[in-house]
Amino acid sequence: MNFLFFEGISQNPNSYLILAIIIFCAGIFTVLTRKNIIGILLGIELMLNAGALNFIAFSFFRHESADYSGHVFAIFVIVLAAAEAVVALAILLAVYQQRRSVSTDDISDLKG
């Protein structure tokens, strides 16, 4: 197991990748188990951050010379996450005004 690839934990890419996996798994767990829609949103934010962390890590470790595509992608991820949060919350508030609830159990009209 080449877990400690480089000297020093903070300079080891795998430590960042494993950390990202942990955050991502936490996000998945949150998404799967929450009934509150805002809880699901929180999980999604976690997952997105894990992805952005991966982007930054690869940008840092995968290039000998400077290349900031990973940074740009991370910024896009952040911006899109913000956008998604705005839309999701707008929808959520509209739903809440109609149904007085944000539980997924109560928003299940769309049945097959």
Binding site: R34, T104, G112
Partner: peptide
């Protein structure tokens, strides 16, 4: 048949998320 298939679309968001993951 639809009775079988409709379980895929039971309106529960969590179930969908399970499917996705």
């Amino acid at each position: 048949q639809a009775g079988i298939m409709r379980n895929l679309q039971n309106g529960s968001m969590n179930r969908y998320l399970y499917y996705i993951v």
